[in-house]
Each structure stands twice: as structure tokens, then as C-alpha cells.
Design a protein around this nucleic acid. Structure first.
Length: 315
DNA sequence: TATAATGATTTATC
DNA sequence: GATAAATCATTATA
């Protein structure tokens, strides 16, 4: 069982978003056609009815619980904040495009392919958002409908026995508490679904793409022309990153990998080294030829292949 | 489809 | 914090 599956194993019914839902465009329709919420509401009614049978002490304890929640539950606050930050709750902001951009940036994707992933992420987040809001609306509606129903019942009962406003208040509080716990489950499931979605986009190893030919050439050119000290400065890394359309950390990764792999098997890279040495020499010759047309003639680079071993520090 | 190549991550070291 | 080295996970290729 992988991490994602494990995470989902704990996600229960009530509007829970499954792993399949995250990647399935039909999930919204499926959710709506399953009729699950109606069944849930039936369960809720039964639970609430059971609560009405509680002893006075238990009911009072319930109320105390409600009152204690007056300063909002830290867990709910945490969930609310996360949903807000991810763009699931709160005002529509392009389906969490900021979060998608952050995810893409953290993944170190190139500007070209990240836009594809970006829209993919946004579409899936929008799906989660839609499910979340439709479920939330259903629960809120069910809550107010049920509250009205109970109020009507109490009104009817008031004809046969005296019912204090406090008792009505108590009943309403119990109902609201029950519904808010369901909302919390919904929020929790949504948070988990968003986390799974994000982890998919953040897992760069999953989405690894080879750099394009031009980028690899630029990096190799630098590497082989600095073979005696293949450690680009921060400025050089930034320059290379810009040229290659990759991030500075990707440049660092590339040089890290290249140094170690070159050092491990210099023989294997000899041909490549020669190729880039010639290439660099030809480029230099072209540059100097152009310069000589304008100025006095300059001595071109010999094009000689590096014969001295590279100095790659070891620990 | 096995294997090589490659980009990213992790761990240890300085 | 940068880097070496080992390793992982994906992609490219024979």
C-alpha cells in the first residue's frame, strides 16, 4: 500500500473524496448520483433522535460541549485555514492558481511544461472545490430543514406540555453540534484530497522530464570548458539556468550528477569531452575570426583536448 | 522488455 | 549551505 492509499484508507463516507475522485473527471457526477448524502441524512436524523432520548444530564453535558466550542475548535480552524489557503473555500481565485503556481515552482518544472501541469492541477482542484461546496450546501440545507422540523415538533408538543425557550435553544444547539461534526469530516476529507493532489504535483521524481537537447548542450559546454574546476559560481548557475530554462537548483543537481558520474567513469565520457572541446574551440575560433575582421588578427584557440585530469574535489 | 541514461532526493561530510 | 556519494524513479533506447 503506498502513502496515498494509506492516507485515503482513513477517509470515511460523508462526502469523502477518494483517490479515484481526484483523478476522475466524472467524480462529481458519480458523487451526485450515488444518493449517499440522502442516506447519510437519514443516519443523522436517527442519531439526533437518539440524542433526544438522552437523560437531562447528558443533554446538559452536550450543551456544555457546545459552549466550550464557542472559541472555535483549533482543528476546525486549522482545516478552514488550509482550505482557504488552497483556494478550496473562500472566494473563487481561479481554482487555486496561486497554489498551482507554487506547486509547479517547487517541482522545478520548466516554464513550458508547467503550464500544462498547471491547468491539470487547477482542473482537479476545481473539481474538489465543486464537490466540497455542493456537499457543504447540502449539509447546511439539511441542517436548517431539520432544525425547522424539530422546532415544528416542539411547537406541536407545546400544546400538550410547557416547553421553555431554553429547551428549544438546547435542542437547536444539539442539532447544530451534530451537523458541524459532519462538516468537519467533510473538511478533513477535502484537505486530504488536496494534500494528495499536491503531493502528486510536488513529487518531481514522478514527473521527471529530460532537459531538452539545447539545455544539455549548454550545460555540457560549461562543464567541459571548466573541467579543471567544474564548480560554477552562483552567478554562473543563474546564467546557465536562464539559458537552459531551468531552475538554479536544477543546474546544481545537474553539475552534482555530472561531476560524480564523470569522475566514476572518465573513460566513458572521453568521447563527449573531446566533442565539446572541439565545439568550444570552433566557437572560439569563429568569435576571434569575427573579431579579427574588425580589429587586428588574434591567435585562435588550439582546439586541443584536455589532457590533464580534472580537479574534482573529494571528501 | 531489459538495460542504460538521467534528473531528483537523501544522507553524510566539511 | 555546498558538495560527494548512494540511491530512487522515471524516461529513452536497443
Amino acid at each position: 500500500m503506498d502513502d496515498q492509499t494509506r492516507m485515503l484508507a482513513g477517509m470515511g463516507g460523508l462526502g469523502g473524496l477518494s483517490q479515484a475522485d481526484v483523478g476522475d473527471p466524472d467524480s462529481v457526477r458519480k458523487q451526485q448520483s450515488l444518493g449517499q448524502p440522502q442516506q447519510d441524512i437519514g443516519d443523522i436524523l436517527q442519531q439526533i433522535m437518539a440524542i433526544t432520548d438522552e437523560s437531562l444530564d447528558e443533554a446538559q453535558a452536550s450543551i456544555r460541549g457546545v459552549q466550550e466550542e464557542d472559541p472555535p475548535d483549533p482543528q476546525i480552524m486549522r482545516l478552514d485555514n488550509m482550505l482557504l489557503a488552497e483556494g478550496v473555500s473562500g472566494p473563487e481565485k481561479g481554482g487555486g492558481s496561486a497554489a498551482a503556481a507554487a506547486a509547479a515552482a517547487a517541482a522545478g518544472g520548466s516554464p513550458n511544461d508547467s503550464s500544462i501541469e498547471h491547468s491539470d492541477y487547477r482542473a482537479k482542484l476545481a473539481q474538489i472545490r465543486q464537490i466540497y461546496h455542493s456537499e457543504l450546501e447540502k449539509y447546511e440545507q439539511a441542517c436548517s430543514e431539520f432544525t425547522n422540523h424539530v422546532m415544528n415538533l416542539l411547537r406541536e408538543q407545546s400544546r400538550t406540555r410547557p416547553i421553555s425557550p431554553k429547551e428549544i435553544e438546547r435542542m437547536v444547539a444539539i442539532i447544530h453540534r451534530k451537523f458541524s461534526s459532519i462538516q468537519m469530516q467533510l473538511k478533513q476529507s477535502t484537505c486530504e484530497a488536496v494534500m494528495i493532489l499536491r503531493s502528486r504535483f510536488l513529487d518531481a521524481r514522478r514527473k521527471r522530464r529530460n532537459f531538452n537537447k539545447q539545455a544539455t548542450e549548454v550545460l555540457n559546454e560549461y562543464f567541459y570548458s571548466h573541467l579543471s574546476n567544474p564548480y560554477p559560481s552562483e552567478e554562473a548557475k543563474e546564467e546557465l539556468a536562464k539559458k537552459c530554462g531551468i531552475t538554479v537548483s536544477q543546474v546544481s543537481n545537474w553539475f552534482g550528477n555530472k561531476r560524480i558520474r564523470y569522475k566514476k567513469n572518465i573513460g566513458k565520457f572521453q568521447e563527449e569531452a573531446n566533442l565539446y572541446a572541439v565545439k568550444t574551440a570552433v566557437d572560439a575560433a569563429n568569435v576571434s575570426a569575427q573579431a579579427s575582421q574588425a580589429n587586428s588578427p588574434a591567435t585562435p584557440n588550439s582546439g586541443k583536448v584536455h589532457s590533464s585530469p580534472p580537479i574534482i574535489s573529494s571528501r
